[in-house]
Amino acid sequence: MTLPSLTAEPDVGAGDPAPAERPDTVRAGRSPGGRRTTARERLEIVAFVSPALVLLGLFVVWPVLSAVRMSLYRWRGFGPMDDFVGLDNYRRVLTDDVFTQAVTHNLVIVVLSIAIQLPLGLAVALLLNRRMRGRGVVRTLIFVPYVLAEVIAGVIWFQLMIPDTGVVDGLLGGVGVTPPDQGFLGTPGLALWAVMAVLTWKYLGLAILLLLAGLQSVPEEVYEAAQLDGASWWQTQRRIVVPLLGPTIRTWCFLSMIGSLQLFDMVWVLTGGGPANATTTMATYLVTQGTQRGNYGIAGAASVVLFVIGVVMAALYQRLVLRRDTEDAR
């Protein structure tokens, strides 16, 4: 059932006829742990690894590098790329209000996703972390929104939020709230919040599930010891269980952050970045510039900015937050 973690040692097989032998003893002959790699082994390694490296190089690394090159030219997508403009595209991107708004939207989504989903997810996970009938079913159903394609979820929510005839407006009208005329997705001041709400719906299940899985690895004795010491349920959760969940929480935050920076599908389907650029993200900006307007240089510069923001945030997070986990592991 469980996947072994990085540090897992091979089990000394219980059903093994000769389990007494220590698994790590250096064996004579062709041990795979031999000191030197022979020419033959080197050839084998190259053969095994090269398909993956070729794919990674061609479709992942090269495009990113070529975005850098593209960003230095004015290029409309056809003909030779020879109109070198230096950093002009960057100047234009960084002074474009639409782009700076897009960056702001991304950062708002990064912060809000964590600020909303983490406490909510933790609360639900802690409450559900007990033996109860139907727990498996509950966990499965909570996961459903995550399984749906963002596009599909977006289309469903778009229909739910259609002004007047949509069910959201219907329900709000039922409790006496007047929904906005243009609908939630059509009102500039509300659209980003509406997108945020749908994203929370879509990704909360993943947070809950990962946190529940993390809770499974908290040993039973911890609860017993805390109980013996007279700790209340709340004290136990807050002082003992949540800190033990630290690594899971920190990694989830990291994944959530990276995802928020790349946000495209949901926005594209729900609002297309509108109304009046109220929900543009960096990704919708660069796709619009590149494929719809043919401003490949601008799109390249925006890609590089997005990449740099992502790497800087990941590096900072790694340094400031995740390093504790790697140190703990030693």
Partner: peptide, 23 residues
């Protein structure tokens, strides 16, 4: 070599999409 793959996690599709489209 393993780190190459770990770092690959940081190269998301959105960043590479326009050059990928051209490629």
């Amino acid at each position: 070599l393993f780190m190459v793959f770990v770092l690959g996690l940081l190269f998301p599709l959105a960043t590479a999409i326009i050059p990928l489209f051209v490629l």
